[in-house]
Simulated assay, not measured.
Amino acid sequence: MSIAFTFPGQGSQAVGMGRDLAEAFPEARAVFEEVDDALSQKLSKVMWEGPEDELTLTANAQPALMAVSIAAMRVMEKGGLSLRDKVSYVAGHSLGEYSALCAAGTFSLADTARLLRIRGDAMQAAVPVGEGAMAAIIGLEAEDVEAVCAAASAGSVCQIANDNGGGQLVVSGARAAVEEAARLASEKGAKRAIMLPVSAPFHSALMQPAADAMREALAKVGKSAPAVPVIANVTVSPLTDPEEIARRLVEQVTGRVRWRETVAWFGENGVGTLYEIGSGKVLSGLARRINRDLNAVAVNAPADIEAAMQALV
């Protein structure tokens, strides 16, 4: 059985993340310093000291989460890990796809930080605050949530943004339509339908201005073929061509994060272990709910890295 590395998305951030790596490993410190320099901002200070509301801002959370993932990767590489030799695939949840591509060498660290800052700013600016919304629908099948979105949109925008697996889907779009979708989902038998405390309707058609901004930004940045294929969020297929990867990243801004299908794809294609590289354990928890046969391991603290390296090298 082969191995895949996965990289977390927004929501996995927490004040203090990455500080233990920076204190323990010079390779990790170098990553945080390079990200700070690329953004002309002491982002590491926000990551380690807060305040939480500043870290949670989309424009900060996205490069911050990437930085922790790449810090862990650099430590593992220093210890002798070769991604190309040990890992069959990489994938990331939403912004985590950029972390995966940085880890696999498609983008440089500095370029990835700048791309994620552009992405975060553009996603925040795409829709006036208060006009968009997202809601988590728990306990309905995807087909039922599709029907709810179709009924709720009625000339507006409401669509599945994230299919996270484990009976959890997130819908996104215009606030009134999303609120109606949450109501209809409850009527249809959802266990819970919860409006989420987010600042914009991510992964919906309302994000088209942000998609346009990313198309422009990605056209200007250097791109290399990844060391191992990336499983794209929007296609659930392995990609290695840099230009196709860029096109799919543009689509991802307005498209669905098909994480349930991604984890299922791993199980169907010979992957036995998923290592989640970076802050938190969200993806590991989802993987266990989607496919109990997969071994899911979260790697973010120094002790996690030590254990992973004993297994991998």
Rank of each mutant, 00 (worst) to 15 (best):
I137Q: 05
A64C: 05
P302M: 07
Q124I: 02
P209C: 08
M1N: 11
A133V: 09
A152Q: 02
S99L: 05
R215W: 01
I290T: 13
K220A: 15
R248A: 02
E97K: 02
L286Y: 02
A61W: 13
A64F: 07
V35S: 01
A210C: 09
A185L: 07
V127L: 10
N295W: 00
A122W: 07
I277Y: 07
K78P: 00
K191L: 12
N300M: 08
L43I: 04
F202T: 05
V171R: 02
R29E: 15
A110W: 03
G80A: 05
A190Y: 06
L109I: 06
D212F: 00
S44F: 09
L249I: 11
Q124C: 02
L206R: 11
A136L: 06
W48K: 02
A38Q: 05
P226S: 01
D163S: 13
A301C: 04
A185K: 02
V236E: 11
R175M: 07
W259D: 05
R258I: 06
F202G: 08
P229R: 05
A103E: 12
A181W: 11
S153F: 01
V313C: 12
V90N: 03
S153H: 00
T262W: 11
M207F: 06
S153G: 08
L312I: 01
A150D: 13
